[in-house]
């Protein structure tokens, strides 16, 4: 994992008032911890440690439990992510039509592995179970744009179109 992204994580100022206003409607409803974390991640792009500490403090839930929940679900990220999120579909249809080759080519091009972010925060690479566009297999999503019926040699040009 790259150090630049971690440094950003530590240096980023977290506005605790923002955090409080997100938590506020859920105080006293401990079963709503997942929606709270989802809202926080939507706002900050990931879950900075301070936000989880604040949830613990305001909702009276042990930090260990919050961390337990946050690490259990694939959706929650503990580190800042890139400006462009590449999701490589690893569904069955994509797998048998060559998604491993696509993933490999992206990893080679960006010099990162699945789950990592480039040092310039331009791309984050994630593998996802199935995005349900099986007719277009193999397919990747970059942000909200699907790129389907891919072959490895198309990767370079596609990546170049995202800044």
């Amino acid at each position: 994992m790259n150090t630049d992204a971690e440094a950003t994580a530590i240096n980023q100022e977290i506005d605790l008032h923002q955090v409080d206003s997100i938590i506020e409607p859920y105080i006293g409803r401990k079963e709503m911890i997942i929606p709270v974390l989802q809202k926080l991640q939507e706002h900050f792009g990931y879950l900075p440690r301070q936000t989880m500490e604040q949830v613990s403090y305001r909702m009276h839930i042990p930090l260990s439990r919050i961390y337990g929940v946050a690490t259990f679900y694939a959706q929650f990220k503990m580190r800042p992510r890139g400006r462009n999120i590449i999701r490589v579909c690893k569904g069955t249809a994509c797998h048998i039509q060559g998604s491993p080759k696509i993933a490999e080519r992206i990893e080679e091009n960006l010099a990162i592995q699945n789950g990592e972010t480039t040092t310039d925060l331009r791309f984050t690479l994630e593998e996802v179970a199935c995005i349900g566009a099986c007719a277009l297999a193999p397919v990747i999503m970059i942000n909200d744009n699907p790129h389907g019926r891919l072959t490895a040699d198309k990767i370079k040009d596609i990546l170049a179109s995202y800044k």
């Binding site: 997942i34 929606p35 974390l37 989802q38 259990f72 679900y73 694939a74 959706q75 929650f76």
Partner: peptide, 8 residues
């Protein structure tokens, strides 16, 4: 409505 958070 509860949104799942990505766990098969």
């Amino acid at each position: 409505i509860k949104e799942g958070a990505g766990a098969f």
